[in-house]
Design a protein around this nucleic acid. Structure first.
Lengths: 138, 138
DNA sequence: TATTTTGCTTTCGATTTGAAAGTAAAAATA
DNA sequence: TATTTTTACTTTCAAATCGAAAGCAAAATA
């Protein structure tokens, strides 16, 4: 339970700066990415992602994203200790940013990427709308 | 002059994670933003942007972006003390990420934005290709 | 009942940050 | 020509943020 509702201290009214103030760190969008791929994730699921986020950082980012209403946190149907995180519409709408970032890396760091990843990006570049739609409906 | 060429230590081969490792901080994309708007900028120009980056941070980010070949640094035609920073193609290609981030903020933080900004985002939402093309040709 | 799993929190040393002051060279001004 | 100002940084330092590891309590499982 969060008590202190920290007032947002935005650096400017630029919409880019605003976005960076909210989720412009090394981890937030990776959490969103996992939720785009898998739709539902638990704390442990996120911990197992290959970037190896620490539990302190993950805990912090999850509550920030929840405060921002980018994700929701709900109870597991049978296991009281486990929580299920999902994207809201606000979170889903971060997909284009993520896709464009992936697309850029595809162009300039192609050799670092897995074949599976390349195929997703290629599909996105060919038909962005369709790939984004897939994320939203899966 | 940079001596130590630090080896990139990427957290994973995910293209999103890769992008975040390179420019996923609070300042790098704001520098790119200024260059998208104005094409040419000096150290002082960047310093005057409304987000008020400190000179130490600006200096650090400019050399990182130059190392990444996202920007170039060249001499001022008449003033030896001044340098001119510009985007490379690699840097220009960050425009869609920036535009999508602005678009997201437009949707969810509309009331924070200036009318001028809103108009740009509206134009982008109506015809992304055209707005991006404008950036590249101005 | 004992052990394991889960979702955290706590601790702590290391890294990164912003703010401020300092610097040196070049340019502008007197 | 001498002095002042401008520019592009660098340096310093306290504060904030970070990752790694350990700790914890409740719930699930064996």
């Amino acid at each position: 339970m969060k008590v202190k509702k920290e007032a947002h201290n935005f650096r400017s009214n630029c919409p880019l700066s605003l976005g960076l103030d909210l989720f412009g760190d090394k981890w937030s969008l990776l959490i969103v990415r996992d939720l785009l791929y898998y739709k539902e994730r638990t704390f442990k699921d996120f911990s197992l992602a290959k970037e190896k986020i620490s539990s302190a950082r993950l805990s912090d980012r999850l509550s920030k994203l929840e405060d921002l209403k980018i994700i929701t946190k709900s109870n597991h149907p049978t296991n009281k200790k486990v929580f299920i995180y999902r994207l809201t519409q606000k979170g889903l709408d971060l997909a284009p940013i993520i896709a464009e970032c992936m697309s850029w890396s595809y162009t300039y760091f192609n050799e670092h990427l897995s074949d599976k990843t390349k195929k997703i990006v290629e599909a996105y570049q060919k038909n962005p709308e369709q790939v984004l739609k897939q994320f939203k409906s899966q």
